[in-house]
C-alpha cells in the first residue's frame, strides 16, 4: 500500500516516515510511505495513488484543509498521535496504518 504523510515542511515527517518504513520492513509489511510539506500535499495526492493520508500532529490546525484535498481524491485521512510522531512511536503509527490495509 502507499501512504503519504504531511507535515509543515516535509522535514520532520521524513524522519518519522523512515522509522515507520523500517518498522514495516521488520514486520514484513509491503508498504511505501512518503513525506511531503503542506504546500505540496494537494498536488501529490492528485498525481499519486495513495491509500492513506497521515497528518502530523503539529499541523492538526490545517486538518480541515487536508481533509478536503483527501476527499477530492478519495483518500482516507488520519491524524498521527503526538507520541506516534517519533522514531520510537513508529510501531504505534504503523498499527494505525495497518487498519487501512
Amino acid at each position: 500500500m502507499d501512504v503519504l504523510m504531511v507535515c509543515s515542511g516535509g522535514m520532520s515527517s521524513a524522519i518519522v516516515v523512515k522509522a515507520i518504513k523500517k518498522e514495516a520492513d521488520k514486520q514484513g509489511i509491503d508498504m511505501n510511505i512518503k513525506a511531503v510539506g503542506s504546500g505540496s500535499v494537494e498536488d501529490e495526492l492528485k498525481d499519486g495513488q495513495y491509500d492513506l493520508l497521515l497528518v502530523a500532529p503539529q499541523v492538526k490546525h490545517q486538518f480541515d484543509t487536508f481533509a478536503s484535498y483527501a476527499k477530492e481524491n478519495n483518500v482516507p485521512i488520519e491524524k498521527v498521535e503526538p507520541m506516534g510522531y517519533t522514531p520510537i512511536g513508529a510501531p504505534k503509527t504503523l498499527n494505525l496504518i495497518k487498519k487501512y490495509k
Binding site: M11, Y85, I88
Partner: peptide, 20 residues
Amino acid sequence: VGRFSIVPALFNINEPLIFG
C-alpha cells in the same frame, strides 16, 4: 529521546523531540 533527537537537532529539526 535525546539520542534519536540529537542529529536532527543539529539541523534545527525538533519535532521528534517535541512530541517524544
